Computed example of a mutant assay.
Amino acid sequence: MERRVTIRDVAARADVSAGAVSLALNGRPGVSEQTRARIVAAARELGWSPSSAARSLAGGPRLHTVGLALTPDTAAAGLDAVLMALIGGIESVLAERPCALLLHVAPDRAAETALYRQWWQSGRVNGTVLLGLTADDPRIDAVHHLGMPAVAVAHPSLSGPFPAVWSDDAAAVAEAVRYLAVLGHRRIAHVSGPAALGRTILRRESFAATAAELGLDLARSLPTDLSAAAGARATHELLAAPDRPTAIVYDNDLMAVAGGGAAADLGLRVPADVSLVAWDDSDLCRITRPALSALSHDPFAFGAEVAHCLLELLDIGRAASRSGGAPVLVPRGTTGPPRRT
């Protein structure tokens, strides 16, 4: 476990007293400009943030900060409105206390890991939230090695030593497949997210297990990058096959809407020829015509639960993993019995 850099470390590197470091980093008189420059350089070399040092040395109450780092692939997997609602839920809880959310976008996972190290060594954050976990995610070991408190937005099987907050995606997928089977569908497909993404793994496993339990004639999964274009391509591939599915479950709303367009391009009607179910019951699902059947959940409330879990961890040094509930299927105009042939 890496030790957090302290004021004494900065003082030793600059060969000055801790008091001189306090004066220099608070912009107060009492040290020469040459000494001040040496102290600031030492702080930077050690990864100590001068702004954090100024807060901790000023004698006032410390501002507790939660760091949240995103990469382009994490942001894409979160899908805009859903991710923003989750972040809003986190902020709503932090705002009840002297806490702040530090949001940073890193270009890739390596830069994200380096950011955690800089945040922790400089004392800039008290803890973090890990999003978009994959199987054997390297961030788990890296953040644990730092000793940084963290909460993982993932199933506990993926969170390593950290407490997890997760939604029961496996139960939601099983509900959707059973609902479609009750309507009479025997050929069902799943257009999923990236194959390595933790929640994709859980959803695909549940899809396969439920299909096997029900003895479906066809149960095919296609991984995608969760974009609308990928959803359209996957739908076209599925519906152009001789044994095309009569129902498709998508891992987000964008792909489901694009899938409806792809079906229309092939001359197929929704839901007469193919039923569609979307994940993320967004406004998009409700304003699309026909309105999309969807697996509905509350990302704002989920984000609030994530924040409560992290604050519990920061307050008492431990927190239990917890489920944020299972998304609930809301049937609408894109699902119905399959056409009899």
Results as ranks from 00 to 15, higher is better:
A209S: 14
M255Q: 12
V277H: 04
L254V: 00
F207H: 04
Y250K: 03
L226G: 00
I201Q: 11
A196S: 14
A212M: 11
D281Q: 02
F207I: 09
D251R: 05
A263D: 02
E305G: 09
A208F: 06
R244K: 13
T235A: 11
R233S: 09
A219N: 11
D253W: 11
E205T: 09
L292M: 11
F302T: 02
V249F: 10
P299E: 01
E305F: 05
G259E: 12
L239F: 04
T224G: 04
L214N: 04
L284I: 09
R269A: 14
R233K: 08
E213K: 10
A241Y: 12
A241K: 13
G215R: 11
A247P: 12
T288V: 08
T235Q: 11
D280G: 02
D265I: 07
T246M: 07
L284Y: 10
L284S: 06
F300E: 14
P223L: 14
G198S: 11
L197G: 02
S275G: 07
A240F: 07
A262M: 04
E213N: 04
D265H: 12
Y250T: 00
V274N: 04
D298W: 09
S275D: 07
L202S: 05
I287G: 02
L226M: 13
R286G: 03
L216N: 01
I248V: 15
A263H: 00
L239K: 00
R269P: 08
F302A: 03
A212D: 15
R220N: 03
S275M: 10
G261V: 07
